[in-house]
Amino acid sequence: MPRILYKYLDIVGAKCMIGNQNLQFTNASQLNDPFDCHPKLIDYSNVPNTKLQGWIPKEWWIEKEENDALNLRNDTWLCSLSKINDSLLMWSHYCYNHKGICIGLDIDKVLESVPPMFGTIYLEPLVLDVQYQDIIERPNAYHTTKDLFSYQWQTKAKEWEYEQEVRLVIPKPSPIYAAFTPQQAKLTKEIWDWREIRHYMPLKGECFESIYFGVNIDEQEKEKIIQFVRKKLNPHINLYQMRVYADAFRIQPEFIKPLNSDLSVYKKRRGKVPSSIQNDVSDI
């Protein structure tokens, strides 16, 4: 698994994540794929006789196990990241037609940033590499070597494979890290759905390794973000502008050259100017 993982965001979500220095976790029941983390991914129909004990109906046991899996889904929050930063589809879907940004996160530093008791079961999120399948190959809940919890959280249809997703998964996160969005805060308490409430894990500035600006980014928004992240977030952050590739249906990052003062920071920190900076300078 790569050390740097990526989060695609529209400009509003991006500014919230950068300005608040946190990572949003969404309930597993609220994702855009109805099969995500669904109990039907696992086969509970082959109930062994040892569980039935001669008097418990098989249908009751199946319903009980599926309800347990459904409750697990409803009690689990996750954050979706990607191994890649140049997916045309994700730039279109999640970055509002290439007008947003893609944030590169150092996953090792992210896990070092996990606050005490972020989760009430696990102290820090599980990092799961999503597995993609052509059909739902449902494992037998009672005769399998698979970790059923992980299987439920990390199995997706083959159609989603282009996302190359890695998930941070936290069952039963602590409510002290829950927060309403501005839209949710306007709703009356009687119509709140607790599954729609996000949880936000604080991040240190050093977790933000890079930022990639979309092809259609608003230049004023771009400049505001550049000034903020260099001064207040992480002075060592790598910044890139995505450009249309000339010879194929691809986009590629173009390094945004640091100011002279930033170059001295790089030299002091790394002993030399990164190759991407060298190439950029030599082209001038």
Rank of each mutant, 00 (worst) to 15 (best):
L41H: 09
P171W: 04
I18L: 09
C95G: 01
Y44Q: 11
W77R: 02
H38E: 09
P171G: 05
E223P: 11
D108R: 15
L70I: 12
V127R: 05
P2D: 13
K222W: 11
Q184H: 06
Q21T: 14
L78N: 02
P182N: 04
F255W: 14
D262E: 13
I226Q: 11
N20Y: 03
H98A: 07
I284H: 15
G54K: 00
Q152K: 14
K186L: 10
N46T: 12
L126S: 08
Y96L: 07
Y96V: 05
I11T: 05
Q53E: 01
Q131S: 03
G119V: 02
W55M: 00
G54I: 00
I11C: 00
I191H: 04
Q30L: 10
F180D: 06
H98G: 08
I251L: 12
D43C: 07
R198Q: 00
I277S: 10
K268L: 05
F228L: 13
E63A: 13
P274S: 04
M17E: 01
R73I: 07
Q133W: 00
I284P: 14
F180Q: 03
H143D: 11
V169Y: 04
K231F: 13
L23A: 01
E159K: 12
I211T: 04
I226R: 10
W160N: 03
I237V: 10
Y6R: 07
K40N: 15
K186I: 04
E196C: 02
Y44S: 14
W192C: 05
A179R: 05
N71R: 00
T50E: 06
E254M: 15
Y151W: 13
C95T: 05
C37M: 13
I42Y: 07
K99N: 05
P125K: 02
I217W: 06
E65Y: 11
K109W: 04
E159C: 11
P253Q: 15
P258C: 03
L89E: 03
D33Y: 08
A248F: 09
P115K: 10
Y96D: 08
K7Y: 14
V265L: 13
P253H: 15
A185T: 08
R195V: 09
K222T: 12
A248K: 10
N260A: 12
D108K: 15
L88A: 08
N20G: 07
S113N: 12
R198H: 03
V47E: 00
R73E: 02
D247E: 15
V215F: 14
P253F: 14
L41D: 05
Q183G: 08
P2L: 06
I107R: 07
Q220E: 07
D75I: 03
I225V: 14
I237H: 14
